[in-house]
Design a protein around this nucleic acid. Structure first.
Length: 893
RNA sequence: GGGCGAAUAGCUCAGCUGGGAGAGCAUCGGCCUUACAAGCCGAGGGUCACAGGUUCGAUCCCUGUUUCGCCCACCA
């Protein structure tokens, strides 16, 4: 019976790694086996991450891909370490974005949300969510994300909605939420306030109108400039800079506002830029954000002259009823008629437009709900200052503090329908405001049953600010909360540090009285290889799903990991993905090679590697290098140096394990000596097992697939323990010896190549070395040396003469001599030697200058001085040998 | 205007507390050597943006300059 029949899964590995089938098969298996499910063992440390919830309308982009790869990397690492590991997935209801999607759908049916009414509309959004909301979740699965999917949450879930209401009511009762007038970005067409990031600023050609504002006493006038003359009807002051000498005389003078019968004051405010225009600024607190601030500082009245539809109201006097742009025209004409229009100039400026309908935004005051963030922000700042929350990379601390210092109250109300409706009711009887977690049946003040709930919903960020504890079941006192809160680390993109991260800190510290996470890792934005932002219009978008299809998920994940260096923007280059695909393939083939030499019969063979002292040199060497790699990888993971995780693995697997170790032990594997064979097989399997585990967090699929095909009874690699360093493996002596041998081999190969010796031709090698110990060592490994350089003969001597027509090189104190009758490129060699000599001369001069410098000798550490002395000796020897070679070659000319 | 970051091989990037710089890709040369041509072996290639300073010693620390990128504010 052949092995294939016995182990149907363990048939010979195909020559190239077929990722598509492997990925599909293993992900399904992981789900079936519930390997992603969190455990809550009492005696284990906890590691938890809550996913930055993507918008439910979202489609996986490369930022998500990076973000989730890094999270999965850490989650898989900690799971293998045996921690109670939880990664909570979920999506965000994304108020405006989602409402938009459904409104567009309605529009195609010639319906508006008003046609449906609030209740029906919301039903429709939920229906949309049921049907289409899972897109991004499925895409995350294709990335290999090992989230605990049974705990998937949605910010509009019943439980999370309750958390939102609880927090709202609590903050309201503490006086930290209030309702007040504020200036907002108002879209007169959509009839809602917009968040700042929902306003698109577009450079627009406009006019700058210079208007004369006469003094009330008739003694003169001041000229102010504006792009929106209609707003002058709502002016309640003129502002100048306090230090502006031109306007000191205006201190006690009133301004007679043209087109109205009002007299307004002049105020002095640092905000005014003296250089702009005339240095005098008209102040319209009800229709301009800055003016609003100035108004607050000087206690100015707010006179609203434009209504919610963009039409002038009765406060605009004779202009009432005019559309704001019609009014602008009329105001300009009237001013002109009065001789008050100084001049008009063309002016390009940024006009804020609604990102949905492109209507020009009208800043206006309206009743909105706010969070008083100062006391909350102070807690967050304190937590960061005290190191209870650490931020990686640390360059963000300054930015964080600066932003928190200047933080303004947070407007949390939105005039849309999709979201958490504000849990506040106005009693139609007594007009009192009732704020409750659950809808009140009657007014607690007057007993009236007629209560009207606020129409506004909460800013989406309000619910996401609660995400770290609302997803764990708060306000219930759950086991999850006790086990996993605070979460371990938050991994997110830096652009939502303030929108989201800071607010989670504030809410977590205030509501839970505990940080929401211990660490914050902020990764960069992924750009194209030229550093440009990826955008559909530029056409430089790299679609993760296409990359997965083309190169495989593992290669893509490895690339993202390799690019994730701290504190730098990421320039994604598709060629790199292809490079890492080759790496995956390399690993695959190394495993194939191993499999050829391993059998089902002896899975316990790896025990040999546990006692490395008795093993031959290459085995001790690779185990020592493995040990160093384990150490490096763990340190890099613990310090969030993801790129180093990737490079340490890459370097070890390809260049040490494959290039040197596998080549070196081929002789042993094919040897007749069973002891040599067993050693090689034991270490080969050991190292392979370790690197698979080491890399599983980055490249879960290929490692799992190879793992399953290795000999012995094997469960999922996901539940194997992550590699740990072992002092028995550490072997600096073996590394030193191997470094010498590898140097000798490389040197001999170079000689071969430069003399254009055909790779299959054998050479004769003479090694000259004065050191008897080294000669012994070289002799010990003569067979390997001969095999690695294809030498027909190998002689090792203490001293000897170098034939004139020999290739020659020096490795430490070993002279490499390869007689090559007539094959030496004399001229080329001489040129090379001349370059070499020049370099050595320079080096020697520099070293001698250093050693001759009293200051250096007095101040430099002894180790550095000793190193320079060693260098001097080495350079002198090499120089001597170089000159000998030149002499030799000159005879051949 | 304020802040942050970057500048290292042709390209994309490492280089973590100062002791004469590395990788991958690309280039050039040679190889189908019993895991892998998606591979192997070798080679070439850098005044570490510029100018000062600190230091025995600077890619690294400090100051300034230039170029590029980002963030915040503002553009009445």
């Amino acid at each position: 019976m052949n092995e294939t029949a016995q182990h149907p899964e363990k048939d010979t590995l195909s020559k190239a790694y077929e990722f598509a089938e492997v990925e599909r098969r293993w992900y399904a298996r992981w789900l079936d086996d519930k390997t992603f499910s969190a455990r809550m063992d009492k005696d284990k440390p906890a590691f938890s991450i809550v996913i930055p919830p993507p918008n439910v309308t979202g489609v996986l982009h490369i930022g998500h891909a990076l973000n989730n790869t890094l999270q999965d990397l850490l989650v898989r690492y900690h799971r293998m370490k045996g921690d109670n590991t939880l990664w909570v997935p979920g999506t965000d209801h994304a108020g405006i974005a989602t409402q938009n999607v459904v409104e567009r759908q309605l529009a195609s049916e010639n319906l508006s949300r008003h046609d449906l009414g609030r209740e029906k509309f919301i039903e429709r959004v939920w229906a949309w969510r049921e049907e289409k909301g899972g897109t991004i979740i499925n895409q995350l699965k294709r990335m290999g994300a090992s989230c605990d999917w049974e705990r998937e949450r949605f910010t509009m879930d019943e439980g999370l909605s309750r958390a939102v209401r609880e927090v709202f009511v609590r903050l309201y009762r503490e006086g930290l939420i209030y309702k007040g007038d504020y200036i907002v970005n108002w879209c007169p067409r959509c009839h809602t306030a917009l968040a700042d990031d929902e306003v698109e600023h577009e450079p627009t050609d406009g006019k700058l109108y210079h208007i004369r504002y006469p003094y009330a006493d008739g003694s003169g006038f001041v000229v102010v400039a504006t792009t929106r003359p209609e707003t002058m009807l709502g002016d309640t002051a003129v502002a100048v800079h306090p230090d502006d000498e031109r306007y000191q005389h205006l201190k006690d003078i009133g301004i007679s506002l043209p087109l109205t019968d009002r007299t307004i004051p002049v105020v002095f405010d640092h905000h005014v830029q003296r250089e702009f225009g005339t240095g005098a600024l008209k102040v319209t607190p009800a229709h301009d954000r800055d003016d609003y601030e100035i108004g607050l500082r000087h206690d100015l009245p707010r006179l609203k002259v434009i209504d919610d539809k963009g039409v002038m109201n009765e406060a605009a006097g004779v202009y009432a009823g005019l559309d704001r742009f019609a009014c602008r025209k009329k105001v300009v004409e009237d001013l002109q008629a009065l001789g008050m229009l100084d001049r008009i100039e063309d002016y390009q400026h940024a006009v804020g437009k609604c990102y949905r309908c492109f209507e020009v935004i009208e800043p206006t005051t309206s009743k909105q709900w706010f969070v008083s963030v100062r006391p909350l922000a102070d807690k967050a700042v304190a937590a960061v200052q005290e190191g209870r929350i650490k931020i990686y990379p640390n360059t963000w601390y300054r930015t964080f503090y600066a932003w928190m210092d200047n933080i303004r109250d947070w407007c949390i109300s939105r005039q849309i329908w999709w979201g958490h409706r504000i849990p506040a009711w106005t009693c139609q009887g007594c007009q009192q405001l009732v704020v409750e977690v659950d809808p009140p049946q009657v007014c607690p003040f007057c007993g009236s049953a007629s209560l009207h709930q606020e129409d506004d919903v909460l800013d989406t960020w309000f619910s996401s600010a609660l995400w770290p504890f609302s997803t764990l079941g708060w306000p219930e006192k759950t086991r999850e909360l006790a086990t996993f809160y605070p979460t371990s680390v938050l991994i997110t993109s830096f652009d939502i540090l303030f929108f989201w991260v800071a607010r989670m800190m504030m809410m977590g510290l205030h509501v839970m009285d505990e940080v929401p996470f211990h660490d914050v890792y902020l990764h960069a934005l992924v750009r194209d290889k030229f550093g440009k932002k990826m955008s559909k219009s530029t056409g430089n978008v790299i679609d993760p799903l296409v990359m997965i299809q083309q190169y495989g998920t593992d290669a893509f994940r490895f690339t993202l990991t390799a690019f994730a260096a701290q504190g730098r923007e990421i320039r994604m280059d598709e060629e790199r993905i292809d490079g890492y695909r080759r790496f995956i393939n390399k690993l695959w083939n190394a495993a194939r090679f191993a499999q050829m030499h391993l059998s089902e019969a002896d899975p316990g063979i790896t025990a040999l590697a546990a006692e490395p002292a008795s093993l031959a040199l290459p085995h001790r060497w690779i185990l020592s290098r493995l040990n160093a790699t384990i150490n490096d990888v763990r340190a890099a993971l613990d310090g969030y140096n993801f790129n180093e995780v990737a490079s340490a693995n890459y370097q070890f697997v390809w260049h040490e394990f494959c290039d040197w170790y596998l080549e070196w032990v081929k002789a042993d594997l094919f040897s007749d000596d069973p002891a040599a064979r067993d050693q090689a097989r034991a270490v080969l399997l050991t190292v392979l097992e370790q690197v698979l585990k080491l890399m599983h967090p980055i490249i879960p699929f290929v490692t799992e697939e190879i793992w399953s095909r290795l000999p012995g009874e094997r469960g999922s690699i996901m539940v194997e323990s992550f590699p740990e360093t072992r002092s028995a493996w550490e072997d600096p002596a073996a590394e030193t010896v191997m470094n010498l041998l590898m140097g000798v081999i490389s040197g001999l190969r170079t000689i071969r190549t430069e003399a254009e010796v055909h790779p299959s031709a054998k050479i004769d090698v003479l090694l000259l070395c004065p050191d008897a110990d080294k000669r012994a060592l070289l002799g010990e490994h003569a067979a390997a040396l001969q095999a690695m350089v294809r030498a027909g003969s190998l002689a090792i001597e203490a001293d000897g003469t170098v034939p004139d027509d020999a290739g020659h090189a020096l490795m430490q104190d070993v002279e490499l001599v390869v007689p090559l009758k007539g094959l030496i490129d004399v001229v080329g060699e001489l040129e090379k030697l001349a370059r070499e000599q020049g370099k050595l001369d320079k080096d020697l001069a520099r070293i001698l200058a250093k050693l001759g410098n009293d200051q250096f000798m007095a101040n430099a550490p002894a180790a550095v001085v000793a190193k320079e002395r060693d260098k001097e000796a080495e350079v002198r020897v090499r120089l001597g040998k170089t000159l000998e070679s030149v002499e030799r070659l000159n005879k051949l000319r």
